[in-house]
Amino acid sequence: MNAPAPSVPDTVGGAARTLPVRGGVGLKPEHFREILATGPDIGFFEIHAENYMVDGGPFHHYLSRIRERYPLSIHGVGLSIGGESPLDAKHLDRLAMLLARYQPESFSEHLAWASHGDVFLNDLLPVPYHAETLARVCDHVDQVQDRLRRRMLLENPATYVEFAASTMAETGFIAEVVRRTGCGLLLDVSNVYVACVNHHRDPYAYIDSLPADAVGQIHLAGFARDIDAAGDPLLIDSHGAPVAQVVWDLYRHALARVGPVPTLIERDNDIPAFAVLLAEAHQAERSMREAAAPSIVESLSCGICA
């Protein structure tokens, strides 16, 4: 078994960078002009890396101006960290150029695969959890962190099927990747809820099983409901609806375990008015303040007792 990896710093060119512990939203073209015109009170924006892997154009024009005013998180969807094929060196080079250009406070990717050989799929697919996959994922994470010269966050997946070949629990697999590579964890609370409902597991126990000190960011999103072939509920990670109350409840449990961390509202379909997303980001901030309050009260009480 590999020895524990040294901590990988969240740096670009030697300068430490962190997202503010606030709510953020995904940056959408529909909102570019409004954001620049109104300067909303928001913690940060996040983009999908693959939407910006070109030299110029309107996306870069607006992102450059918004980046001057706000912290930035970049979220990748195309590295295929869990894939059997080697990482795409050209894709990784383009990603490195994008990060060098904007120097985001955070970079994250998915525990999933999306390509096989020269075939690229428009989806994020699950992996079996066993020793062979673990070694491959750790090797890929190491390569990404070495090339980008920064710590990456790895996102837990939303899944609809599982592999009979798996010999490890998903949370144990993730914890071992974190231990071996020094990467961080992007805790997608919505993905936890979707996957646990689909596989008849307890989402609260799932969160309790993760390495809390590795969580560097949280994602919240909406989901859609369907029924599978057996007549059981099937949740789809649609990113096309407001965050459900059951996910807000699970989010508060996560905050009680990991403490307040930067939290993103994801909305990639049926994009609403910016004010709707901003309100959800502010709701996340209220939950963070409530999670922090008990520790402040306890600290004050201890000081009085002393």
Results as ranks from 00 to 15, higher is better:
residue 179 R to M: 06
residue 179 R to S: 04
residue 179 R to L: 07
residue 179 R to A: 08
residue 179 R to V: 10
residue 179 R to E: 01
residue 180 R to P: 07
residue 180 R to H: 05
residue 181 T to R: 13
residue 181 T to Y: 09
residue 181 T to Q: 12
residue 182 G to A: 08
residue 182 G to R: 00
residue 182 G to L: 02
residue 182 G to N: 01
residue 183 C to A: 14
residue 183 C to T: 13
residue 183 C to D: 08
residue 183 C to I: 10
residue 185 L to M: 14
residue 185 L to S: 06
residue 185 L to N: 10
residue 185 L to T: 11
residue 186 L to I: 12
residue 186 L to G: 03
residue 186 L to N: 10
residue 187 L to Q: 12
residue 187 L to G: 02
residue 187 L to C: 11
residue 188 D to P: 09
residue 188 D to R: 13
residue 188 D to C: 14
residue 189 V to S: 04
residue 190 S to R: 07
residue 190 S to L: 03
residue 191 N to R: 01
residue 191 N to P: 03
residue 192 V to M: 10
residue 192 V to K: 10
residue 192 V to E: 06
residue 192 V to I: 15
residue 192 V to H: 05
residue 193 Y to L: 13
residue 194 V to Y: 01
residue 194 V to Q: 11
residue 195 A to C: 14
residue 195 A to S: 15
residue 196 C to A: 12
residue 196 C to I: 13
residue 197 V to E: 09
residue 197 V to S: 08
residue 197 V to D: 04
residue 197 V to F: 08
residue 197 V to W: 04
residue 198 N to R: 10
residue 198 N to S: 06
residue 198 N to T: 14
residue 198 N to Q: 09
residue 199 H to L: 14
residue 199 H to Y: 07
residue 200 H to W: 12
residue 200 H to E: 15
residue 201 R to G: 02
residue 201 R to H: 05
residue 202 D to N: 15
residue 203 P to N: 07
residue 203 P to T: 14
residue 203 P to L: 12
residue 206 Y to F: 15
residue 207 I to L: 10
residue 207 I to G: 10
residue 208 D to M: 09
residue 208 D to W: 00
residue 209 S to P: 01
residue 209 S to L: 06
residue 209 S to F: 08
residue 211 P to I: 14
residue 212 A to Q: 10
residue 212 A to F: 03
residue 212 A to H: 12
residue 214 A to G: 00
residue 214 A to W: 02
residue 214 A to N: 00
residue 214 A to V: 00
residue 215 V to K: 09
residue 215 V to L: 08
residue 217 Q to S: 04
residue 217 Q to V: 09
residue 217 Q to N: 08
residue 217 Q to E: 15
residue 218 I to Q: 06
residue 218 I to R: 02
residue 218 I to D: 04
residue 218 I to A: 13
residue 219 H to T: 03
residue 219 H to M: 07
residue 219 H to K: 11
residue 219 H to G: 06
residue 219 H to V: 03
residue 220 L to V: 11
residue 220 L to R: 07
residue 221 A to Y: 03
residue 221 A to W: 07
residue 224 A to V: 02
residue 224 A to E: 12
residue 225 R to H: 04
residue 225 R to L: 00
residue 225 R to P: 01
residue 225 R to C: 04
residue 226 D to L: 03
residue 226 D to R: 11
residue 226 D to C: 07
residue 227 I to N: 00
residue 228 D to N: 15
residue 228 D to R: 05
residue 229 A to N: 01
residue 229 A to L: 11
residue 229 A to Q: 09
residue 230 A to F: 00
residue 230 A to S: 11
residue 230 A to Q: 13
residue 231 G to C: 06
residue 232 D to Y: 09
residue 232 D to Q: 13
residue 232 D to H: 10
residue 232 D to K: 13
residue 232 D to C: 05
residue 234 L to F: 02
residue 234 L to V: 02
residue 234 L to I: 03
residue 234 L to E: 04
residue 235 L to R: 00
residue 235 L to M: 01
residue 236 I to T: 00
residue 237 D to L: 06
residue 237 D to H: 01
residue 238 S to R: 03
residue 238 S to N: 06
residue 238 S to G: 00
residue 238 S to Y: 02
residue 238 S to V: 05
residue 239 H to P: 06
residue 239 H to W: 04
residue 239 H to I: 07
residue 239 H to R: 09
